[in-house]
């Protein structure tokens, strides 16, 4: 085989390899983009997006980034969601203890009518902060589909765990322990 032929074949191999790699990366990009569920915007391990919501029944607002250094549990719920009702008493039970340990519970409510929420709070005698997300902006930001969905956020602001569906008392306690700042 002449030197010319060898060089030609070498060049051809390089050309083929490069073109195949380019196409492979384009395909990977397309398939990965398609597989990515558009709504999974907040993944475990990533930073929890900041938000600011009004506390129910007051003019006070709560901004997530002000809670750096504390563990934060964000629970998305609504009064018309049956499973949400189950876990509310557990949250109420554990709230005073974990507040002492530096964990804040924020229950983001997705109802639109104040009176419905107030009647619910009175019925269940809830004392932890209920935040109002009437337009569902924070819900969209966190890509919430089914409720209840709960995020457990580390003191450094990263998402420790995302739980879809209701929590039992022991599970809830376990997650709260995970995000409690070490004293």
């Amino acid at each position: 085989m002449s030197e010319q032929t060898v060089n030609k074949k070498k060049r051809r191999l390089i050309f083929r390899t490069v073109l195949l790699l380019v196409m492979l990366s384009l395909i990977t990009f397309a398939v990965v983009s398609a597989l990515q569920d558009e709504d999974v915007t907040v993944a475990e391990g990533s930073e929890a997006p900041n938000f600011s919501l009004k506390k129910f029944g007051s003019d006070e607002t709560v901004e997530l980034k002000d809670l750096r250094g504390k563990g934060v549990m964000i629970n998305f719920w609504a009064t018309y969601c049956e499973p949400c009702k189950e876990e509310m008493p557990y949250m109420e039970d554990l709230y005073p203890e974990y507040k002492e340990k530096g964990v804040e519970i924020l229950a983001v409510n997705l109802d639109t009518t104040d009176i419905v929420v107030r009647q619910f709070m009175e019925e269940y005698q809830l004392t932890f902060p209920i935040l109002q997300d009437k337009d569902g902006q924070v819900m969209n930001l966190y890509g919430i589909k089914p409720i209840p969905t709960t995020f457990f956020i580390n003191p450094d602001g990263t998402v420790e765990e995302k739980v879809i569906g209701p929590l039992t008392l022991s599970k809830l306690e376990g997650h709260l322990q995970d995000i409690a700042p070490s004293s």
Partner: peptide, 22 residues
């Protein structure tokens, strides 16, 4: 006095339950 408001209600075993916020 409005004791209870159900924006969209259904009867579930004779007990009124709320199914949505609309």
């Amino acid at each position: 006095r409005l004791d209870r408001y159900y924006p969209e209600f259904e009867l579930d075993d004779g007990v009124p339950t709320q199914v949505s916020k609309f």
